[in-house]
Simulated assay, not measured.
Amino acid sequence: MQVQMQERLAGLRQDFEKGEHQLQGLVQQETVLRESLLRVSGAIHILEELLSADQENTAYEETAGVTRTRADGQR
């Protein structure tokens, strides 16, 4: 009976170590994913601000009667 309990204990310790290793990997993945989401969120924020500013400029130019000229010389 004692041999069976020792074998079971060894198996449980192995399972526990595997679980800890998997958890470590998941925590690392979470950190990487959070950092990626933070970068994407920042990029979204910047692009939204740029688009908003461009829309405000366009609206101002339209109300002020300003004609924009494109880089290729066309209006």
Rank of each mutant, 00 (worst) to 15 (best):
N57R: 13
T58Q: 14
N57F: 02
A43R: 13
Q14K: 14
R75Y: 06
A64E: 07
L51D: 09
Q6D: 14
Y60T: 06
T31L: 12
E48C: 03
G65V: 01
L9C: 06
R68N: 08
A71G: 04
Q28P: 00
R13F: 03
Y60K: 14
R39M: 07
Q14W: 05
I44M: 12
V3W: 09
A64M: 09
E35F: 01
A64Y: 00
E62G: 02
V40S: 11
Q29S: 13
Q6K: 15
A59L: 12
V32I: 10
R34L: 15
S52Y: 04
A64S: 09
L33Q: 09
H21V: 01
R70P: 00
L12F: 06
E17F: 06
V32M: 11
Q4D: 14
A59F: 04
A64Q: 08
M5A: 15
Q6W: 07
M5I: 14
T67R: 13
R75C: 04
A53F: 03
V3E: 15
M5K: 12
H45Q: 15
T69N: 03
A43I: 02
Y60G: 02
V66R: 10
L26V: 05
M5T: 08
E7T: 11
L47T: 07
A59Y: 04
A71T: 09
Q55R: 13
Q2P: 00
Y60Q: 11
R13N: 10
G42T: 02
E7F: 04
T63F: 07
T69V: 14
Q29P: 00
V27C: 02
E56N: 06
E49W: 00
A43E: 15
A71Q: 13
R34C: 03
A53N: 08
E56R: 06
L9F: 14
E17G: 01
T67W: 02
A71V: 11
T58W: 05
Q55G: 04
Q74Y: 06
R39C: 06
R75G: 02
V27L: 12
G73S: 04
Q74T: 11
H21Y: 01
A71S: 12
Q29E: 14
A43G: 04
